[in-house]
Design a protein around this nucleic acid. Structure first.
Lengths: 210, 210, 210, 210
DNA sequence: CATGAATGAGTATTCATTCAT
DNA sequence: CATGAATGAATACTCATTCAT
């Protein structure tokens, strides 16, 4: 029912007698960190603004100094994660010399990221689906990430590194496999991102015929 | 904000002089039909019981003669669709003589079903994700469907129709591709289930190397 | 959560295939019997008309053929018990030759009645207090019973069987002791009406000086 | 249907220009005062939270800033009265040198209290009975008060100030007489607590033989 | 800026009562 | 008369948002 339970803006300082001199960045960050936990735990729909600030040492009204409403925090959170992950993925693809490497790097990066950030996995997972319309395969970050990948795939096709085919569908398929195998992987113990990435890569390279 | 806007128990008859004319089956069905639309439009989280009955010529209290709460209607709806679809899929797999046919039949059935029932696609799509915990890759119906498929896949492995590999991961992958390509397909115009099924099948049979 | 659980209008006949030929008296009685249980269990405020008919094999609407609403059944029930008890008490007083006997008979009758009818005790006890305004020391039946006793007391004063004093207060006191000692008695095991009556009688005859 | 009709937090000041002027203590108190009236008028069962806040210039939600629900306000109210009255009663008993004084002080304190606080009498009277289970002879406050008195009575028995007898029954009887004579007294005009106390005391000391 | 109490619109749910069959 | 589904007014309670301090 509680992961941490109290996220102070600055965890190393006890609440001073005089009201803490919070600065903008610190408070905003405290809200975001609390929101990440709460969304992961209760899902977007089940979360209230009060659930978030309760996990903070801030007051209700303070929330509205930083965000317009629940949706905006959620968006900010997703943007944070999305941008971080997209950067990693893009970097992985750029280092690839063959198409197989591109696929393999992508999956390994993706699975490893969530294996190392299970909290972020919980967040996205609890909120896959719409309900606020900013999540899922259709969330703006995911969409952007898929678009970037599709561009790289199309380029690879141009360069003859892979036979030409419906790039949109291929991209969708790669994404779909990423999501579903991620779920499968995270349920296992131990979590083995490397093995998951290999499975997915092999599947895309040569199908089940392997 | 409104697709239809008034679902009478019997659309061919104007509100009868008497209000009590409706019989059990009819009213239950009217609620389900209204709920299907509303959930598709607003998503599970965004839907209120009042939204549902408002799309009906029934009274508030009548809703509770048929369902305990929002979750139960939603469940009923999902069960309806899920059981119908699972039956079709199972049937397709049983008719398959090779593993390729199994995959191909599965995809074709799946894509065709939603191509023909766009309303049901809208419903599932708006509610992919949790929030009520009965939907998505983890919804009971989807879970059951995947379990059935995994069983058939394992049997095929026993029979040597496909090389042995991690059946759970393979099942997850097949499911993931189904979801993501379905989305891609439904956005296109015209909707081409056959083509989508062929793409997915080929991918699984021999990867991108084709 | 259930004392009996199904009070059929006629407990000796299984529900016949054809709708039972209930006659007025039978149905009315079935409702009263069910109501007695339910009021005892849930209290007047906590009881709904549906709670009552649910304990019956009758239909909701049938209730309204016999009673206007919850209050009326409750009233009828109280009238039943009240009249029965008042008759017993009056009879006991008439047989008394001295004032002490009058008091003693009254208490013994009263305590014995509830010792033998614990269900009726539960009913009155759960509903002592107002909430519907027909219960308690001020319920019409109790009021009537006290008035009858007061009349007998006044007569005894006229006859010189007891010294003159404020008859209304004395009546109230006798009643108050009846209620409070009844509660005390019913909580004990075994229930000893005779002992309780003796205690109360002695108290009124000579106070604690005994 | 209305005694007063609007209880402002501060009756001497017209609604101030600002709505937020009220402080915690004031609002809490306004709710309690309104509740006292409403419970007295409609009884516990007949009272809704809306009835209470309607008698206030506060908003619905504000009620829930101070109390969890109807039962809690009721409890708070009863606790207030109960503790006040129990303290007075205990004090009266401690000042008694004989057992007769103990009884006499008790009754005089009790009857005087309600003679001076008719609103509190209305409250307890309308709610004597259960329905929420916190009232009456069985309400926690009454129970506590009776227990305290029983302890003092038992001590008096030890000290030989009164002959030994069933202390529980005696306590119950004293309580029952208090309730019933209180009702009788409050109906009279003028209200004469002294006379009522004398009557009750004499009754307990020497019975009707006086 | 921070605070946190006040606000009140909004939602789920119940239940007495009606009435077509 | 009996039936039991339909009705809809009524209530408890929540929660995003405001705003005086």
């Amino acid at each position: 029912m509680s992961l941490d339970s109290q996220i102070t803006a600055d965890p190393f300082v006890d609440k001073p007698a005089t009201k803490r001199a919070n600065n903008r960045a610190t408070n905003q960050d405290a809200i975001l960190r609390a929101a990440r936990l709460v969304f992961a735990e209760l899902g977007y729909g089940g979360t209230t603004v009060r659930d978030i600030i309760r996990r903070t040492d801030l007051a209700t009204g303070t929330f509205y100094n930083y965000f317009d409403n629940k949706e905006q925090v959620f968006l900010a959170l997703n943007t944070q994660i999305g941008e971080e992950l997209r950067a990693l993925l893009a970097q992985g693809r750029q280092q690839a010399k063959t198409f197989e490497e591109l696929i393999a790097n992508n999956y390994l990066t993706y699975f490893t990221y969530f294996a190392n950030n299970p909290q972020n996995y919980a967040l996205t997972r609890s909120n896959r689906g719409r309900d606020g319309a900013n999540v899922n395969m259709e969330g703006p970050q995911v969409k952007a990430g898929l678009a970037e990948m599709q561009a790289d795939i199309e380029q690879a096709m141009q360069l003859g590194r892979v036979s030409k085919m419906d790039a949109a569908m291929l991209t969708a398929a790669i994404g779909g496999v990423a999501f579903s195998i991620l779920d499968d992987m995270m349920q296992r113990n131990p979590v083995q991102p490397k093995q998951a990435a290999e499975f997915a890569t092999r599947l895309f390279m040569s199908g089940i015929s392997t």
